[in-house]
């Protein structure tokens, strides 16, 4: 197999663009949330400073190999997720490593990070991390169920497992989007989306008031910097999938920016104004509302 250097270069560039976009966008989102509270909130470039600050910490401690690998896995999950889906539709440059079965791989990567995190956090030995992990795993598993069902529904609908093909099928006007062609599947997927964005009401995994602060309790300095990077990358990668599957993808960076922001805001809209569910309440919620909608989506197709 020959190495496609330009493609790797573009992938790296994609990564760079997306990370910077994420840094700015998450700060912007926090500022918007702060406005609801009635304040200005962090500075728009605050995320960068925090990142450098964490890298610049002088002392760090480790709890073993897995502890170190946890954030790496997590970041790998984010990077993988991003790089195996086409970021910009119709652009050879920004489609990265999208291939025929990328949808399945993407779903795998969604889980991969959480699993890696589980291993790492468990190694840190902090009981709160352990509790956070068990919660995180069970909640993510259940929350992703509707997504899996929705994906199943739309792969049936479009008869493909290739994201690029799915996006292609949605071109030609807003009403070709899955959102309108298959609203039930979209709805099911949105349940999963809101459920996995680590925002209220489904953020009991990292709830500071209950288990400060869940899996990342023991992480600091560069480890935390890795996780921070992932925290801006991963949600966007996930949003990109949703954008591609349900909202017609993006044909240029501008459209990308707008759509990602808009979709991301869905979870923010819900998150800012809700308290969080207990973990078993979230599970009940997904089983009660998400799962039937997902099943319905399949049935309708």
């Amino acid at each position: 197999m020959s190495i496609d250097w330009p493609r790797i270069g573009y992938a790296a560039l994609t990564l760079f663009i997306v990370i910077n976009y994420g840094m700015i966008m998450t700060a912007l989102v926090r500022k918007i949330g702060a406005r609801v509270s009635g304040r200005y909130g962090i500075r728009i470039y605050q995320n960068y400073i925090d990142l450098v600050k964490n890298i610049a910490l002088r002392s760090k401690i480790t709890h073993g190999v897995m502890y170190y690998l946890g954030p790496v896995f997590r970041l790998t999950g984010g990077v993988g997720l991003l790089l195996f889906v086409p970021t910009i539709y119709g652009s050879a440059m920004w489609s990265n490593f999208s291939f025929a079965g990328d949808l399945v791989l993407a779903l795998y990567f969604v889980f991969f990070g959480t699993l890696g995190m589980a291993l790492g956090a468990a190694e840190s030995g902090h009981p709160y991390s352990a509790i956070g992990i068990t919660r995180g795993l069970s909640q993510v598993t259940v929350a992703e169920l509707p997504l899996a069902l929705a994906v199943f529904a739309i792969s049936l609908q479009y008869q493909t497992l290739n994201i690029t093909d799915i996006v292609a099928a949605q071109q030609g006007g807003i009403f070709n989007w899955t959102l309108f062609t298959n609203p039930v599947a979209t709805l099911a997927a949105l349940f999963a989306f809101v459920g996995t964005m680590m925002r209220s009401p489904f953020d009991v995994v990292i709830a500071p008031q209950e288990i400060p602060i869940g899996p990342p309790t023991e992480y600091h300095s560069s480890y935390l910097a890795l996780m921070q990077t992932n925290r801006v990358l991963f949600p966007i990668a996930k949003t990109v999938i949703y954008m591609n599957l349900f909202f017609g993808g993006a044909t240029n960076w501008f459209e990308f920016a707008i759509k990602v922001f808009a979709i991301y805001m869905i979870s923010v809209l819900v998150g800012v104004v809700h308290p969080r569910f207990r973990v078993e309440q979230s599970i009940t919620f997904f089983l009660k509302w998400g799962l039937p909608v997902g099943v319905l989506a399949i049935l309708l197709v």
Partner: peptide, 15 residues
């Protein structure tokens, strides 16, 4: 009804 909180997003912060 919780979503009514979002009306504050357009107000000038009280800071």
């Amino acid at each position: 009804s919780p979503f009514t909180a979002w009306k504050h997003v357009l107000e000038t912060p009280v800071t």
